[in-house]
Computed example of a mutant assay.
Amino acid sequence: MTTILYARVSTLEQNLGHQRTQAEAAGFVIDEVVADHGESGVSTCLADRPQGRRLFDMLRKGDTLVVRWVDRLGRNYQDVTDTIRLFMRKGVIIRTVINGMTFDGSTKDPMQEAVRDALIAFMAATAQAQAEATKEAQKAGIAHAKSDETKYRGKKPSYDRDQLSLVSDLLAMGKGTSEIAKEAELSRQTVLRIKDDPKAAESALVKWGL
């Protein structure tokens, strides 16, 4: 029985290491890490990513696949739900670091299956919705950063691209400010600023080339 962590970041500037750190801090004992660096979870299905496709060959019945959250598998509703169900049919257990969710195909009770599948669908839909919201915030942030009124860069952000992405994900899941601050290693004030104005948060990173 092998425990595999799948990690993914969508840009080359982001760091993958924190996803393993978070998993181990949550008590997971990782046997192997499979990671895609600079791969979009929106436009590229898991099976089409260089390392993501390895999972389909590596995972065996009884193995555990660990991800920070389902959005690491992807941010496309159909792809994520299809992938999780395929792995469950193979006897693979999927576990998330955030929220400590566990999905497997062990139950044969139709009501339990319905609840499980509804939760998977909800999480996959949330991942896609968050991706679409982030894309709009990035567009607005870039436009804001390029406008004549914002040539002055201002104070360097106290967060990086990884932390902004994590805060956005956790906000979409309805996490509280204090919990997000602890998870992202930021102050509550910083989290509140990101929450109140995601466009300005994105703009600040763009201005500083982060």
Rank of each mutant, 00 (worst) to 15 (best):
A47Q: 09
R116N: 07
K61G: 04
V34D: 02
R75Q: 15
V70C: 07
T21G: 07
K61M: 06
R72Y: 00
I120D: 05
E32H: 12
Q138M: 14
Y77S: 14
D82V: 09
K61A: 15
N99T: 13
G62P: 05
V34C: 04
I30H: 08
R116H: 06
M88N: 05
V66E: 04
V42T: 13
P50D: 03
I30E: 08
I93M: 10
M101R: 15
R54K: 15
D36V: 09
V29Q: 14
F87S: 09
Q112L: 15
V115N: 02
R8S: 02
L46N: 01
M111G: 05
Y77C: 14
T83C: 10
T107H: 03
T126I: 14
F28W: 12
L119Q: 12
N76Y: 08
A26C: 10
E24G: 10
V42C: 06
A47Y: 01
S106A: 14
A23P: 09
D109V: 10
T21F: 03
T134I: 13
Q51R: 12
F103A: 08
E24T: 15
F87R: 06
L59W: 01
T81K: 11
T64H: 00
L5R: 04
S10M: 03
Q130F: 03
A121I: 08
V29R: 14
T134F: 09
T134S: 13
I98M: 05
G17Q: 10
D36H: 06
H37D: 09
D82C: 04
R54T: 08
L55F: 02
Q51C: 10
M58S: 06
L86A: 11
V97L: 06
S40H: 06
A124W: 04
Q128S: 12
R75W: 04
H18Q: 12
D109C: 11
N99C: 05
G27M: 11
V70R: 03
Q51W: 00
E13I: 11
P110S: 11
D36S: 09
K135P: 00
I30K: 10
P110D: 05
R49C: 01
A25D: 12
E32A: 14
T96S: 06
G27T: 10
A7L: 10
V115W: 03
D57R: 13
Q22H: 07
R68Y: 05
R85C: 03
T126P: 02
A47D: 03
A7D: 03
L73E: 02
L119N: 12
V92F: 01
T81V: 15
R49F: 00
R72V: 14
T81D: 05
V70H: 02
R85L: 13
N76C: 12
G52V: 05
R68W: 01
R8G: 04
E24N: 09
A23C: 11
Q14A: 10
I94S: 01
A118V: 11
T83G: 05
K90Q: 11
L16P: 04
S10N: 09
G74D: 04
T44K: 14
H37F: 06
H18E: 13
T83F: 02
M88D: 04
V29K: 14
V97A: 03
S106I: 14
D31K: 13
Q112P: 00
A131R: 11
E39V: 15
R85A: 13
T21Q: 12
T96W: 00
K108H: 11
D31F: 07
E113Q: 15
I94Q: 01
R49P: 02
S10Q: 08
E13W: 00
V97M: 05
D63W: 06
F56L: 15
N15A: 07
